[in-house]
Write a protein that binds this DNA or RNA. Sequence first.
DNA 1: GAGTGGTCTAGACCACTCA
DNA 2: GAGTGGTCTAGACCACTCC
Lengths: 233, 233
Amino acid sequence: MSDAGRVSYRDIGAELSRRIADRIWAPGALIPGEEALAQEFGCARATVNRALQQLARDGIVERKRKSGTRIAISPVREARLAIPLVRQEIEGKGGAYRYALLSRAVEPLPEGIAARMGLTAADPLLHVRALHWADGAPYQYEDRWIDLDTVPAAGEADFSAVSPNEWLVSSEPFSRAEYVFRAAAASEEETALLELSPGQPVFLAERLTWLLARPITFVRMAHPPSHRVVTRL
Amino acid sequence: MSDAGRVSYRDIGAELSRRIADRIWAPGALIPGEEALAQEFGCARATVNRALQQLARDGIVERKRKSGTRIAISPVREARLAIPLVRQEIEGKGGAYRYALLSRAVEPLPEGIAARMGLTAADPLLHVRALHWADGAPYQYEDRWIDLDTVPAAGEADFSAVSPNEWLVSSEPFSRAEYVFRAAAASEEETALLELSPGQPVFLAERLTWLLARPITFVRMAHPPSHRVVTRL
DNA sequence: GAGTGGTCTAGACCACTCA
DNA sequence: GAGTGGTCTAGACCACTCC
């Protein structure tokens, strides 16, 4: 037995990727079935299957039963975007993290945010505003609304030491979220808090989180224009 | 045999997720080994393994040989960001797509971009500028540099009918790409082309693509502030 | 050394989809 | 109906890591 020569799903994935890159199989082309590839590589079909499933997850190929596996025409590749806590994000870059609570009050929900959360405007929600610094410079202004019906325990938390970001993650770990990234002109408040010059834009990341069908929190995170969101594929 | 009652890796993933959500296993906790879970669920270890690998990919658990599997303390969940072609992006939303080439010339590479591409400033590269519309409104201004040493065929393409975006995707495989999202004040050119009011910001997506160690292309895509990048997790 | 996850195999049956 | 991928099994051995 050639134990050392055992074929791995990585080997197969690499070889298939090479063939695609080298245009041996052009975009749109149908490639051999799993059985045939297993024979060619001298391995079990399950091993080929695993390699192909990975390529399919990465958007390199498209698979359909009965039809077979094709090279994706336009590689709608998916980027993976890690979304850490602000503190981890800053400390991960070697920066010094500082946090301060700006305000905390139960207030009526503004209409625009109510619509996005699927709630009624003027419903009372917990409104928390906070600022995060990296190395002494303003890094993120956090403007958050929390539904106390869904997360009653948030009513007891005072957020002066632990940011609502971290508090929520550690108390409600498992939920569905939607992120929106966009650019906007900085409001007066944002200009002041982030120490911007007038007219500078902000980078906005807005996150909406649900626990099952109930909204937990909506947060708007404003960053100075030096902010970068980086991803690789 | 209860064929209908066969246990799927999805069932196991769902049940484990439920236990995590219900805090039966708190963040940081060590969960039973694969062997034990396989016995509990009455299935093969491979099935449990597949479920756990998926949870690990999603950042829900962390696995280490010998140590076992733990619930992730802070779910640094990864968002998946689909990166389609501009045309697909627009048509996928039901919009009418239009494209026009603005300019195409071999020019010396500006210093800032040369540094990011790992090239020497003043190297001659193909500079292509183009505009993409959705439903008659400017959607994206594309400002692209292409390394003709790596992609000589681009010298023959005229890009008047097919955007460089689509041409490159369908003719040149790439091995690695890096995206940067950020906000910036619109330049005069961007203000004019995207039909913005003075002082409005733009949303920038910059993409750098390599074939092995060689840079293929750098592109800066500027969108009006109405643009949204949306992702779920 | 020993425990736990990582991977491969050979075979089987199922599920979807095309013709 | 038939072809192709999707999944599960039972068993085996390997690889990493903690002690």
